[in-house]
């Protein structure tokens, strides 16, 4: 008898709470966009922040609400963009993968002073010279703040300057904002030629400061039939829309600064 009353009381309570919960879920119903959840599922889920929103959830919400383009996810590339476009019912334009590139090849010939402080690029610009301790005022500091910001292990410091592994880079752009010297650009993955220098001094000055820096001789500019290489502000700048990847400039550079990438024909 006792056990029956206990069961009855529990069952009654359960029923009562069930009704209350059913009522509450009706009253407090939050209208969600079903697409948001589906977009969330197709996004990579790495929360890199490259889209400018707070993680992949924030990006999905923004896309569903129409505040971001269907191509907002950079690491996802064309594949993800196509899936997201399918969910949103629009056409996605083909995405070209862009990867980070450090406009310095290292090779500083010395230091202006001995720096013994915190091994961080931003910290090194806050004390002593605001350009950092190395002789070249424009070059990479080599403390690897960009590498620390990269979630994909795509950056490492070599020869005193950061180098990007383009195959690991997802193009999220976190390193671009981590560099206090603004040395990192996003270039097409299939770029044929790179020009890792940002120096703006005259050739005679650069020779004294750096083993690899551009001396502004202008051979690359003169040789290029397509007008893709220009010396702007003391260093070569490549227009990837014009570059056909012939490699003439690479062979002509007396400093071996211009380099071909293995990715061009892949």
């Amino acid at each position: 008898m006792n056990i029956l009353s206990a069961v009855a009381v529990l069952a009654g309570l359960g029923g009562l709470f069930g009704l209350a919960l059913a009522y509450a879920s009706g009253v407090f119903f939050v209208k969600t966009d079903a697409r948001e959840e589906r977009i969330s599922e197709v996004l990579p889920g790495i929360n890199c922040g490259g889209c400018g929103f707070a993680g992949c959830g924030g990006c999905a919400e923004a896309i569903a609400a129409g505040r971001a383009a269907v191509t907002a996810c950079i690491p996802g590339g064309s594949e993800t963009a196509a899936k997201v476009a399918g969910i949103m019912g629009v056409e996605a334009e083909a995405q070209e993968l862009r990867v980070a590139f450090v406009r310095c090849a290292g090779g500083s010939l010395g230091q202006k002073y001995e720096y013994t402080g915190v091994k961080d690029c931003l910290a090194a610009t806050l004390t002593g010279s605001s350009a950092g301790p190395q002789l070249c005022e424009q070059g990479c500091l080599g403390f690897g703040s960009c590498a620390a910001a990269c979630r994909f292990g795509a950056l490492r410091v070599e020869n005193g300057a950061a180098v990007v592994d383009a195959d690991l880079c997802t193009g999220c752009g976190q390193c671009v904002s981590a560099c206090p010297k603004k040395l990192i650009d996003m270039i097409p993955y299939r770029a044929a030629v790179t020009a890792p220098c940002s120096g703006c001094e005259k050739g005679s000055v650069t020779r004294k400061r750096c083993a690899s820096g551009c001396i502004g001789c202008g051979k690359c500019e003169k040789l290029c039939e397509h007008g893709a290489v220009r010396i702007i502000g003391g260093h070569p700048v490549i227009d990837y829309a014009k570059c056909v990847g012939c490699g003439e400039c690479v062979g002509a550079c007396p400093r071996q600064l211009l380099r071909t990438t293995p990715r061009f024909r892949s």
């Binding site: 505040r67 402080g117 915190v118 961080d120 910290a123 806050l126 004390t127």
Partner: peptide, 28 residues
């Protein structure tokens, strides 16, 4: 420990973060 220099670094990071947030809010 390089406490003082770390704090200068931290303050610079906070300034950059504030500037980025302001830019984002402005864009939105």
């Amino acid at each position: 420990l390089p406490l003082n220099q770390s704090f200068r670094l931290g303050k610079a990071k906070l300034r950059a973060d504030d500037a980025a947030r302001r830019a984002r809010e402005q864009a939105e």
